[in-house]
Design a protein around this nucleic acid. Structure first.
Lengths: 152, 152
DNA sequence: GCTGAAACAAGTAGTGT
DNA sequence: ACACTACTTGTTTCAGC
């Protein structure tokens, strides 16, 4: 995987990252190259794993999830990490799970219908997992911004 | 915004969430409804704000960002929050910024080229912002899973 | 609120330089 | 590594039920 992107690659990635439904032919037109070059590059970038997938981004609040929280999980013993992770995976409201350095062993993102639902997830699910010592929850009052990292 | 989705809405959202380039005509075929109904529904869901946008998801590591961290920021005084947030917005490696409850005032997601780069961002940028008392950084060793919340 | 048809635009694959 | 062509498929709009 040699990831030195040229101008065309970068343009393709940046245009599609902000609009996944953009016509490949229009990108070709904007960059003044042939249609098939765009297709070839996208194929290459996908094969290399630079492009993971294309997704519609939905508004979580509209889906009924009004409470978003980042929650740090402490373990009784570090070696429980993997088992705990597998149990966390069974909780659908946990949409992201990370092994982290520092005070917590695991850091998760939770979407709940409301604060009561969040409490239920923590008390009736997370806290009952074998190996979990405790959790600290940081409820998001507001996501001030969310954006993409620069390309190159 | 009355967000009671019917079967068709849910199917559209779920199919497009996992593949933003999926042909609308194919969705129509799978659901055994007309082509134009799909368009109408997508238009409606977009107007309602349920669909925010469509994005290509890129692999951050391939883009040269090997270090991902969640960082909690403590403030000298709570009232500095908004000013601090505006300064954080100027740092391109910070891709998400949240006002949170609990021990920290602000919680951010940082992508850095490596640990050294992360340290530079924290010491030369974040820590110098007026109002910031200190930070705690949780480096992600591994994102075990990342997925979508259930629809309805 | 939904369908169907038709005009138009885009995606695909094979060929050639 | 890129462009061209011909063919297939998808998108979009609007009249009509």
């Amino acid at each position: 995987m040699n990831n030195q992107f040229d101008y065309i690659d970068k343009q393709i990635l940046s245009k599609l990252r902000s609009d996944a439904r953009k016509a490949y032919s229009q990108i070709a037109e904007e960059l003044k190259v042939s249609n098939s070059l765009i297709h070839q590059r996208i194929k290459k970038l996908t094969a290399e794993g630079v492009i993971k997938n294309a997704e519609f981004v939905l508004e979580e609040k509209s889906l009924g999830y009004k409470t978003k929280s980042y929650t740090g999980i402490r373990l009784q013993e570090a070696r429980f990490a993997k088992e705990v992770m597998l149990e966390l995976k069974k909780i659908p409201e946990i949409t992201e799970c990370n092994f982290v350095s520092g005070y917590y062993a695991i850091f998760v993102l939770i979407f709940a219908r409301d604060n009561e639902h969040l409490q239920k997830i923590l008390y009736d699910n997370v806290h009952l997992i074998k190996g979990v010592a405790g959790t600290d929850t940081f409820i998001c009052f507001d996501t001030c911004f969310k954006r993409h990292i620069p390309i190159e």
